[in-house]
């Protein structure tokens, strides 16, 4: 079977989840789609060799974000999807994430085109997600995924958390980002009440979908 999306043939999809039943249940939707699920049962210790060798045998990836709880994967799913993006392999993150993981994912969010919750994940959304990925590889980002230079106000710095406002996105909602995710030169100068610029996908609806790049220190 398989399916050609935007001129790209997708036949096999690798399913990555550190929980056996999680892999199995994610496989259900893939089974019902035109693709063949390849369930990654074996744990891997080296992400690079996995990306070089195993992934090339498949056409796309479906991964959970939480992979490190067991001795299964050395990195979490956000990083896996990011690396796939770098290699132009369509990858969909299927996960539920809480506040504690938002920043973990945000770090790679620019190159994570789609995040689906387990409830949203089905054969149709799988196909549309792969389409979104391939479109991005082709340079067609949806408006909510395009980053624009915008003003950022630092509201407060508490330990490792930086609370910011992005007036161009929503001037009422404070967003927390991790200090360590900022470039070194920004980390060095940052302080409360400071205003600076960065590129942000201000078209995103939800705060967890925002990503930041190209920070400018004054």
């Amino acid at each position: 079977m398989g399916l050609a999306i935007k001129g790209r043939q997708i036949d096999r999809i690798i399913v990555i989840d550190d929980d056996k039943y999680g892999r199995e249940s994610s496989g259900f939707a893939v089974e019902e789609s035109p693709f063949e699920p390849i369930i990654q049962e074996r744990g891997i210790t080296n992400l690079n060799s996995f990306l070089e060798n195993d992934i090339n045998k498949t056409d796309a990836v479906v991964s959970d974000h939480h992979l490190k709880k067991r001795n299964y994967f050395p990195e979490n799913g956000a990083k896996v999807v990011y690396e796939c993006y770098e290699r132009q392999i369509p990858a969909v993150l299927v996960t539920r994430f809480g506040e504690s993981e938002i920043n973990e994912i945000r770090k790679f969010r620019e190159k994570i085109p789609v995040i689906l919750t387990p409830g949203e994940f089905n054969p149709h959304t799988l196909i549309s997600s792969l389409e979104i990925c391939i479109n991005e590889f082709l340079g067609n980002r949806r408006p909510e995924r395009v980053a624009w230079r915008t003003l950022i106000r630092i509201e407060d710095i508490v330990d490792n958390n930086i609370f910011i406002f992005i007036p161009g996105w929503n001037y009422e909602v404070s967003i927390s980002i991790n200090k360590q995710d900022l470039p070194q030169e920004i980390r060095n100068v940052i302080k409360a009440d400071m205003r600076l610029h960065a590129k942000v996908n201000v078209g995103a609806e939800r705060s967890e979908d925002l990503f930041f790049k190209d920070w400018e220190a004054k």
Binding site: D19, S25, E32, G98
Partner: peptide, 22 residues
């Protein structure tokens, strides 16, 4: 909570959705 949301709930959700579709 964290654990149940991550795995068991994901499994139940995906499985019941599969049953629903099938």
């Amino acid at each position: 909570s964290h654990e149940s949301r991550g795995n068991p709930l994901k499994v139940i959700t995906q499985a019941i959705n599969a049953i629903d579709r099938r």
